[in-house]
Design a binder for these strands. Structure first.
Length: 517
RNA sequence: GCCAGGGUAGCUCAGUGGUAGAGCAGAGGACUCAUAAGCCUUUGGCCGCGGGUUCGAUCCCCGCCCCUGGCACCA
């Protein structure tokens, strides 16, 4: 059986991770967890991109070997993703032998097929930055910016991949696979881009200029540069006997940022695969960016970046994940500010959900000795709540399937609020003061209904805030099933369960201590 | 310049050819199981601007303005 194969972009390890890196991994993790709960066998890959000029220079600047430098930064990225609860199945590093072997194999195959040729590359070279410059790097007056130092025109021999030969094939492929890229408008953007003729792709750097890379198998004086290194991770991680494993490949989704769609993932990658006789991925999921207040772009150089670990330390992993997924409409950009974060934290998590959990456990403890009673009647308030549950569940699942996670969360929180409303309607604290048998029936029914509704509500939140779901289930004395098909039915499985006396999931910030996990 | 996305309540955003919605923030109220939380009621909008199609447009068409991103062999 083929797995649902999901990947994220591999991160370039020349700096520290920020909220953008964190978002992409959390988003993909939510998809992975959702698919698993829906019953799919999931294979979820993340990793790091560790070769190239900037890494080589970064290591040199610190006076340490490149391998040591990437070992350090890769560990930093991996630690963040572990901390964020990213449930990856494999973590690939482009410096690993298993990856390099596949890169060489594919390059050799394409070389043998005549898809790669050697030619002269002429351009303007900055010795200080150790790179060729582009025409767009020029200042308006035609001169080169100061940071490049002395710029000289020079000719360099390199290897090129026959990208252009596949342009028509790619256009045709995109026209016949309208769902290749989500959201749709991105696919139009790619087709627009392809209206201009492609140039062949320079895929090498002379070793004297760049040492930190994978040597070309057919010419040891060169290393391969970027594309045939980084992109290949998606297949090298699942490689076996000259091809990606059939139970993994083609990938169901490459999750990437909009900045690396055109041309790498939408143009180079499908063509590279096609030329090598490998099927393209099924689809690309393209997300937007987090912007600062007023639409300002996040940037490390201006210091305008958000350290995800800071928020995680202060408010917990789940609060952070919840915010990312609730605020971002997948595919579009979204604003980030601490004020927005706090607003979500307080109103959704602390007040609506957290407080509900606490009061429900407390009431059960107080009025029912901490044991969930059996429901005894089904009147209008119960019927309404159950009907809302059915709608919420169906809509949330359908929205998740279309990557509308923010909307799914919104519906789910509406259901959580409805539980609060139900509790007010039944007012167990009043029923408890009555000795009328009818009131006692209603009291037991109310306690049973609110706990069951709570169990269902937090189950629907599991892909986004798995830690919270687990804690609530534990507090409810409930061991959840692995699949949603066995979990999302309104029932009486909690009857007789022994409850925890209370649980503060999201403490208010004034008094906040970081919740344990 | 070309292409794409966006311009709706103080804020973040939904939305539909037929009297404009949610959440948060603001105001008032009843309650007390609960994290001074929850519940009920409520204030608030020339739906970027100007034309057009239509019985009727926030939604369709045209033009314009503003914001964001892309325009490759950088990742």
């Amino acid at each position: 059986m083929k797995s649902f194969y999901l990947t994220t972009a591999i991160d370039y390890v020349n700096g520290s991770p920020h909220i953008g890196h964190a978002y992409e991994k959390v988003l993909t993790d939510v998809i992975a967890r959702f698919r698993r709960l829906m019953g799919d066998e999931v294979f979820f890959l993340i990793g790091t991109d560790e070769h190239g000029q900037k890494v080589q220079m970064g290591a040199r600047k610190r006076g340490i070997p490149a391998q040591q430098f990437v070992d350090n930064t890769a560990a930093e990225f991996r630690a963040l993703y572990d901390r964020l609860g990213v449930s990856y199945d494999d973590f690939i590093r482009t410096t690993e032998e298993r990856h390099q072997r596949v890169v060489r194999e594919i390059l050799q195959r394409l070389h043998d097929q005549g898809e790669i040729y050697r030619a002269e590359y002429r351009g303007f070279y900055s010795t200080r930055q150790e790179q060729f410059l582009q025409e767009k790097d020029r200042l308006p007056d035609g001169s080169w910016p100061e940071i490049f130092g002395e710029v000289t025109e020079l000719v360099e021999s390199n290897y090129f991949f026959k990208l252009r030969a596949y342009q028509d094939w790619l256009i045709d492929y995109l026209r016949t696979h309208e769902d290749f890229i989500f959201p749709r408008f991105r696919q139009k953007q790619v087709l627009e881009f392809l209206k201009e003729p492609l140039n062949d792709l320079c895929i090498s750097r002379p070793r004297e200029r760049l040492e930190w890379g994978i040597p070309l198998p057919f010419d040891q004086d060169f290393v391969t540069y970027v594309w045939f290194d980084a992109l290949v991770n998606y297949v090298s991680a699942v490689w076996s006997e000259g091809a990606p494993r059939a139970d993994r490949w083609p990938a169901d989704f490459h999750v990437i940022g909009k900045d690396i769609l055109v041309p790498p993932h939408a143009v180079y990658w499908p063509i590279m695969l096609h030329a090598a006789g490998i099927a393209p991925p099924k689809s690309l999921l393209v997300h937007g960016w987090w912007l600062l207040k007023g639409g300002q772009k996040m940037s490390k150089s201006t210091g305008a970046a958000v350290d995800p670990l800071d928020l995680v330390d202060r408010f917990g992993v789940d609060a952070f994940r919840y915010f990312l997924i609730r605020e971002m409409n997948v595919g579009q950009d979204s604003e980030f500010s601490v004020e927005l974060f706090l607003s979500r934290y307080n109103s959704d998590l602390a007040n609506d959900l957290g407080n509900l959990v606490n009061r429900a456990l407390n009431m059960a403890g107080r009025y029912s000795a901490g044991v969930v009673p059996a429901p005894e009647v089904l009147e209008e308030p119960e019927r309404e709540l159950q009907a809302l549950w059915s709608r919420t569940r169906d809509e949330a699942i359908s929205l998740c399937e279309g990557f509308q996670f923010h909307a799914a969360l919104e519906r789910t929180l509406t259901f959580i609020k409805a539980i609060n409303r139900y509790v007010e309607q039944r007012a167990p604290w009043k029923l408890a003061k009555s000795s009328e048998p009818a009131d006692q029936v209603l009291l037991r029914t109310a306690l049973a209904t609110m706990t069951e509704a709570l169990r269902l509500g937090v189950t629907l939140l599991a892909p986004v805030i798995p830690g919270t779901t687990a804690k609530v289930n534990a507090a409810l004395g409930h061991t959840p099933a692995l699949k949603w098909s066995d979990e999302l039915q309104w029932g009486t499985s909690l009857t007789g369960a022994k409850l925890q006396p209370g649980l503060v999931l999201f403490p208010r910030p004034e008094t906040a201590k970081p919740p344990a996990v």
